[in-house]
Structure formats: structure tokens, C-alpha cells
């Protein structure tokens, strides 16, 4: 079954058609960047997850975090559950690893802001 995907590489937002039965052939793309994007969106769509975790900061009680690389889209829900369990102790620095290799995705959950 062919599927429609909106390309997000640039604001133009091409409506790509991807055909899984024909080696994930991409049509509707204005530029070449649409081809790998369309293919990946069907085979293994990935996203960077950003959220917050609890922290005992002096001025703030939530610390922003992100996965340091895109993780499979289907893992977002499970990763959020992991994130919601975290309790950090201040101080932290941007880049500090909160959870290494979160849910075996190869991505680390890292702090994105210095908090005292």
C-alpha cells in the first residue's frame, strides 16, 4: 500500500508518496532530500524526545532533558515512562547524562540546561 508522507526537511512540505511494494520508491519530492526522508518515515521513523525530569534545584523543580539522538518513534511512549521516574539532584550541567543508552536505543538521555 502506497502511503503519503509530508516531508519536513524544509518548510516547503512536499507531499511524498512512498511505495513499500516498489523498494520504497518516493514520488512527489521537489528535491533529492525527500527520497531518504520518505523511505525512513516508512521503515523506521525516528524522533528526538525532549521533556523534563524532577530536580531539587534552588530556584526550579524541573530540569529539561533530551535524547541525544533520534530514537524510534514507537519508543516515545516507553521513553516518557522512563523519564517520568527520574529524580535528579542539583547541581547539573548541560550535557550531563541522566540515563545511558535509554531502553537500548543507543541514545542517552541528557540534561540541556545548567541548574544550581
Amino acid at each position: 500500500m502506497k502511503q503519503e508522507v509530508i516531508c519536513v526537511i524544509c518548510p516547503r512540505g512536499c507531499r511524498l508518496t512512498v511505495d513499500p511494494e516498489n523498494d520504497y520508491k518516493v514520488t512527489g519530492n521537489f528535491c533529492a532530500k525527500g527520497v531518504p526522508y520518505g523511505k525512513a518515515e516508512l521503515i523506521n521513523p525516528t524522533r528526538v524526545v525532549t521533556s523534563t525530569v524532577k530536580i531539587d534545584g534552588e530556584k526550579i523543580t524541573r530540569c529539561p532533558v533530551k535524547t541525544d539522538q533520534a530514537i524510534p518513534k514507537k519508543e516515545i511512549k516507553n521513553i516518557m515512562q522512563e523519564i517520568n521516574q527520574v529524580n535528579l539532584n542539583a547541581p547539573v550541567k548541560a550535557g550531563d547524562i541522566v540515563i545511558q543508552n535509554i531502553l537500548n536505543t543507543d541514545a542517552n538521555l541528557v540534561v540541556t540546561r545548567d541548574i544550581d
Binding site: V53, K54, K74, I76, K77, M80, Q81
Partner: peptide
């Protein structure tokens, strides 16, 4: 409050 350790509802994964 956020992060109350309840499971979030995500409609689609």
C-alpha cells in the same frame, strides 16, 4: 503536576 509517575497516555506510537 507533571512527573507524578503516572503512565502517560500516548494515543499512537
Amino acid at each position: 503536576r507533571t512527573k507524578t509517575n503516572e503512565k502517560p497516555e500516548v494515543t499512537k506510537s
